[in-house]
Design a protein around this nucleic acid. Structure first.
Length: 301
DNA sequence: ATCCAGGTATGCA
DNA sequence: TGCATACCTGGA
């Protein structure tokens, strides 16, 4: 009887038992929230302490254990691919505690405060295509709105990976979508750039592998040749989608911090980006994320 | 109602 | 090079 009913229902997927992420990554509730939902990634939501997120063809839930370790659960049908792509996504191979300790916080009071407030913060290693798409949607948009746009794009143009859950669309698919259809996803003037970038990237299907191999300056130049990609978006993509930690994206928040706390009033964004890379060193992007998160937390009201 | 939000591309000194 | 301006849209 029950079996019969289950067969008719558009069955809800069964989820695997909770398992720790290995190698272990240590978060606090605060640094976990900042990492997943603080402007690096735009496809996470939190209900009752359980985070649900998506990337590529993956859906996963994560939650924090009392000891600071992270554990995960996935729909049974996706468990295999989730377990293989989880370590990469969370960059478990990177020791962010050591990277943080190597930042110049001993002589940089503002940074020391931020690190203390956000212990455990990480830089995710997201799929390159999705990172680029997300940040092409980002100019003068708030995080909530970027999340809405990406959800719409996924729903309308992305492959369904579970009932009701869609991956983000690929570049070849987006290249075929008309600009008005894109605008209908609340994209506004960003639609033009996304369409043009999609067309360009579809012509070079292996672009992501090729660009990922390039050193920071060359990869940055390559990205900036794409329509809609300036210094800031390029740096975000390099940092969150390619693991180039020396990248130092300068947005309005960081601009404010650097002006007020580092005495850089009157500096151009590109000078500040350069200053950041020199002052904070090989993991400048991690420092940026600490400062950014602190400023944003204090800034909103 | 007006302003502004995690920028970029353009046009002109 | 350097600076101002337009560009979509939705929410405060």
């Amino acid at each position: 009887m029950e079996l019969k009913e289950a067969a008719h229902r558009p069955s809800k997927p069964a989820w695997t038992p909770w398992r720790p992420i290995k190698p272990a990554v240590g978060f606090t509730a605060c640094s976990l929230a900042e990492t997943l939902d603080g402007g690096q990634a735009f496809r996470w939501r939190c209900d009752d302490g359980v985070w649900t997120g998506q990337w590529s063809d993956v859906v996963v839930r994560v939650r924090l254990r009392t000891d600071g370790a992270l554990e995960w659960s996935a729909p049974d049908v996706l468990a295999k691919r989730v377990s293989t792509s989880l370590p990469g996504y969370f960059a478990t191979g990177r020791d962010f505690a050591s990277l943080t300790d190597a930042l110049p916080w001993r002589s940089d009071h503002r940074l020391a405060i931020a690190i203390q407030a956000l212990t455990g913060l990480r830089i995710l290693r997201q799929p390159l295509d999705e990172t680029l798409l997300a940040f092409l949607c980002s100019p003068t948009k708030q995080i909530v709105q970027i999340k809405q746009i990406l959800a719409l794009l996924a729903k309308r143009f992305g492959a369904e990976i579970l009932p009701g859950m869609h991956a983000l669309p690929t570049w070849p698919v987006l290249a075929e979508v008309s600009e008005p259809e894109l605008r209908a996803c609340s994209l506004g003037f960003r639609a033009r750039h996304i369409k043009a970038a999609a067309v360009a990237l579809s012509e070079t299907p292996d672009w992501s592998n090729r660009v990922e191999c390039l050193p920071y300056p060359e990869a940055r130049e390559w990205l900036m040749r794409l329509p809609g990609v300036g210094e800031k978006i390029a740096d975000c993509v390099l940092l969150f989608g390619m693991g180039k930690l020396e990248s130092f994206p300068v947005d309005v928040w960081i601009l404010k911090v650097m002006c007020r706390r580092y005495g850089l009033e009157g500096w151009k964004n590109s000078w500040i980006a350069h200053f950041g890379r020199v002052h904070f060193g090989p993991a400048a992007g991690l420092a940026q994320q600490y400062l950014f998160a602190l400023e944003r937390r204090n800034g909103r009201q």
